Lab assay of single mutants.
Amino acid sequence: GETKIIYHLDGQETPYLVKLPLPAERVTLADFKGVLQRPSYKFFFKSMDDDFGVVKEEISDDNAKLPCFNGRVVSWLVSA
């Protein structure tokens, strides 16, 4: 499998796309960081919350699996 991750960088209009050679349910924050090489950023991901619906959730645990929608991951990188 392959996972497409779209990421928005510090408010830039056009998002970036990276592809990881892993199925979406196995991709972790560490996998994503390894491709990006951007150490001083906070990582937020499109996520579903039972109370609020669609939210941007910050993930900082490198072992955390990334939230996935239709085989895609959507993220926002914010300068720390």
Score class of each variant (00 low, 15 high):
61 D>V: 03
47 S>Y: 11
72 R>A: 14
25 E>Y: 06
27 V>D: 00
64 A>S: 08
29 L>W: 02
75 S>R: 05
27 V>N: 02
29 L>E: 02
26 R>P: 03
20 L>C: 04
26 R>S: 12
3 T>Q: 00
28 T>Q: 01
70 N>T: 07
57 E>G: 04
76 W>C: 02
31 D>M: 12
52 F>R: 15
25 E>L: 01
76 W>M: 03
38 R>S: 14
56 K>S: 06
37 Q>D: 15
20 L>I: 13
75 S>D: 03
31 D>W: 04
72 R>W: 14
51 D>Y: 09
23 P>R: 04
64 A>E: 09
53 G>M: 12
19 K>E: 12
75 S>P: 05
67 P>A: 01
58 E>Y: 01
60 S>M: 10
21 P>Q: 09
8 H>D: 00
29 L>M: 03
38 R>D: 15
37 Q>I: 10
47 S>P: 03
37 Q>G: 13
17 L>H: 15
46 K>P: 07
73 V>Y: 00
40 S>F: 10
26 R>T: 10
57 E>H: 11
60 S>R: 09
67 P>G: 04
61 D>P: 05
68 C>I: 12
16 Y>M: 13
26 R>Y: 07
2 E>A: 06
78 V>R: 08
49 D>K: 14
53 G>I: 06
6 I>N: 07
40 S>T: 13
18 V>D: 03
59 I>F: 05
70 N>K: 12
14 T>R: 13
69 F>P: 00
11 G>E: 11
71 G>R: 01
4 K>N: 15
66 L>G: 02
78 V>T: 11
20 L>Q: 00
10 D>S: 03
48 M>Y: 14
32 F>T: 05
8 H>T: 06
72 R>N: 13
67 P>Q: 03
34 G>P: 00
58 E>M: 07
78 V>G: 05
33 K>M: 01
71 G>T: 00
72 R>P: 00
38 R>V: 12
74 V>N: 06
29 L>F: 00
41 Y>T: 06
35 V>L: 10
58 E>H: 09
2 E>V: 11
77 L>E: 00
26 R>L: 11
64 A>V: 06
73 V>L: 05
57 E>T: 15
52 F>H: 15
34 G>L: 11
29 L>S: 06
18 V>A: 09
78 V>M: 10
33 K>W: 06
63 N>W: 05
35 V>H: 09
58 E>F: 06
26 R>C: 11
78 V>A: 01
1 G>K: 14
22 L>Y: 06
55 V>T: 14
66 L>V: 01
11 G>P: 03
8 H>C: 00
51 D>F: 10
69 F>Q: 07
59 I>G: 03
58 E>W: 03
29 L>C: 09
12 Q>N: 15
77 L>H: 06
47 S>M: 15
17 L>K: 08
79 S>I: 04
